[in-house]
Design a protein around this nucleic acid. Structure first.
Ligand SMILES: [Mn+2]
Ligand SMILES: [Mn+2]
Ligand SMILES: [Zn+2]
Ligand SMILES: [Zn+2]
Lengths: 157, 157
DNA sequence: TATTAAATAGGATTAAATCCTATTTAGGTG
DNA sequence: CACCTAAATAGGATTTAATCCTATTTAATA
C-alpha cells in the first residue's frame, strides 16, 4: 500500500476512499478481474460506488503505471495488479487468465527476441508480450471424454 | 480463391455471393480491417448487405480456419487473411496493425519458448503469439517535437 | 477554515456484437 | 430441370461494456 500512496502523490492523484478500496480489491485478486467484478466486490463497502468510477479509476491507475490493463480476448477488459514482467495464459473455456514467467533456468524468451531490422528501425516499441491461449487444467479435466469442440458462443470462436 | 472454395466444401459452408465478396475484400485488405470496414467496402457491391452477415461470416471463416481473428486492443475486433505464422505490431496512435515475422537469420522466438514445467503439464496450449505495441513510423514522425504524452482518449490509455 | 480543482454518483448515451425471425437461396435429389 | 430443405441473409431489436454528462461532494492546500 505504500507504493499506492507514493504513486498517487507522484501523479497528483487524490487519495479517495474509493480509490483505496479499488486498489486493495485489485491487489487482493488473483484472476485478473474485470471492472464489473471489482465493482461488485467494492460495493460491499461502498454501496453506492458507481461502475463508472471503477472503470475510470482503474484506467487512471493504469495511466500512472500502478496497474496493467489486459485484453479480455473478446470479453470485457481485465486488470492486473502485477507490475512485474510476466506473461499470460488465457483459458478459452472459463476465461480465467493465468500468470506465468519464464522458467528460472531459462531467460525470458522476449529478452532474446530479435526483430526484423525494419521493425526496430522504423517503429517505436513500447510493449512486448507473449500471449498463450488454450485450456486450463480444470477445464481440461472437465472435458475429459467429451469431444473437445470449439463451440461458438455468441458468434465467438 | 481456390483455397476458399476448397475450405467451404470441406466445412460444408454454402458458397454465397456475400461470402465470396467478404472473403475477397478481406484478402485484398492490408491493415487487418474490422467487420465494419469490410461491410462498408462490400456494401458497394451489395447495398443491402447487413453488418450482422459480415460479422457472422467472418467468425464462421475463422471457425473454419480460413482467416484469423485479432484482438483490437480495446477497439473492435479485427480480421486477418494471413494464415501464415506471423506476429503483430499494434500502433497505439493510429491503431493500425502491422505484420512481422522473425528475421530470416533467426528462428521464430516462439519456437524456442520454454515454458515453466507446470504450464506445459497442466495446461493445454492451443495458441501462442507475440504482441508488440508502440508507435508506427508515420505516427512517430507526426509526433516529432511534440511531447509524447499518452493522452487518454475516452478513458483509454 | 475557506477555497478550488479534482473526483464521484447516477442516469444517459454510444457502439460493437449478438439475437430474433420472416424471407430467401444454395446445393442436393430425382 | 424442378423441387425440397437446411442453411444463410436482411433488417430491426436487444445486450452489454464503455463512456459521457453534469450536479454535487470532497481531498488537498494554504
Ligand atoms: Mn498478470
Ligand atoms: Mn496479420
Ligand atoms: Zn479454464
Ligand atoms: Zn501509427
Amino acid at each position: 500500500m505504500d507504493l499506492f500512496f507514493e504513486k498517487c502523490r507522484e501523479n497528483k492523484l487524490k487519495i479517495t476512499p474509493q480509490r483505496v478500496a479499488i486498489y486493495k480489491a485489485l491487489t487482493a485478486s488473483v484472476s485478473h478481474p474485470s471492472a464489473e467484478q471489482i465493482h461488485k466486490e467494492v460495493k460491499k463497502l461502498f454501496p453506492n460506488l458507481s461502475l463508472d468510477t471503477v472503470n475510470r479509476t482503474l484506467v487512471t491507475f493504469a495511466g500512472a503505471h500502478m496497474i496493467d490493463v489486459v485484453e479480455g480476448h473478446g470479453d470485457s477488459r481485465r486488470f492486473d495488479p502485477n507490475r512485474e514482467a510476466h506473461h499470460h495464459f488465457y483459458c478459452v473455456s472459463c476465461r480465467k487468465i493465468f500468470d506465468f514467467q519464464a522458467d528460472s533456468f531459462q531467460a525470458d524468451p522476449l529478452d532474446s527476441l530479435v526483430l526484423p531490422r525494419e521493425m526496430e528501425e522504423k517503429f517505436l516499441i513500447t510493449g512486448k508480450r507473449i500471449c498463450l491461449t488454450g485450456y486450463c487444467d480444470q477445464c481440461r479435466s472437465k472435458m475429459a471424454g467429451k469431444k473437445l469442440t470449439l463451440v461458438a458462443v455468441k458468434h465467438r470462436i
